[in-house]
Amino acid sequence: MNEPAVKVENLVKRYKEILAVDHLNLEIRQGEIFGLLGPNGSGKTTTINCILSLLSYDMGDISIFGKPMAPNRYDIKKDIGIIMQNVAVFDELTVYENIDYFCGLYIKDKKIRAQYVEDAIDFVGLNDFRKFYPKKLSGGLLRRLNIACGIAHKPKLIILDEPTVAVDPQSRNSILEGIQKLNENGATIIYTSHYMEEVEQICTRIAIVDKGKNLALGTKDELKKLIKKREIITIDILDIKDSDIAAIENLPHVYDVTFENHQLTILCDGGQHNLIRVLDYLQSKEYSFGHVHSELPTLNDVFLEITGKELRD
């Protein structure tokens, strides 16, 4: 059986009185894209820094590919690629020189390194910009360079800490596609973000963290099953009697009905054909209605229900 790519057991990290990470447990399997989802200040980056041994911690154990992690475990570090939220490249070096420098910190053989640098440039699509200095690159291209510097040495574990912050939608899509491609090539990915859509789009498993605690962990479907709300139906309607609202509330799987600003909102806790049942009832009472919308819960709903607050608070 494969060792987990990363195993965090009972991790505690304090900054004086502030408890940044509170008895956190994580097990990240090899080959998956693992999402660490939480609002700003929830302890995601602290956890990542502890995993990378950039920070000392008060309690707990961290192992990577079955080996205990420590600041001087360079044998483990050679298999890790890190892409931080802020672009970390040398302004004084060209695109090629930057990638070559960071790759050179891991790969000593010049020939292999040259090949790896070429591969990284190809991967992020910076072939036409290899002699450009970072200041001449657009924000999106700069992010790509940042990624290339982190993955050039072909690491088995890639950690991306909010890589899409302040990135335009086009570059964001390109970055997300790139991450999926890296995963297809065999790398385990840890992806931290407070953008639930991104995490939902690419991650195979997700941990929701807040105040340094792991609140929930599973696939996105597993997480959504954790909450009562499964379907939200909204119907534009001019007016409706209170007795009819009460009647809709008594329909199977419906647990909450509200009417505000000519909009009827019905929350269902599962089941099938909820929308048809509601529409049949309204038609039977000869209500005329406009726009009808049914949506499944998002991770934000999961987060809202688990923590009682919006993800982007």
Partner: peptide
């Protein structure tokens, strides 16, 4: 100062070169 920029320091500290 270039070498000691915080962002770069983090990336350099993560590398397999001591």
């Amino acid at each position: 100062i270039t070498f000691h920029k915080r962002n770069l320091q983090e990336r350099l500290a993560c590398s397999s070169t001591a």
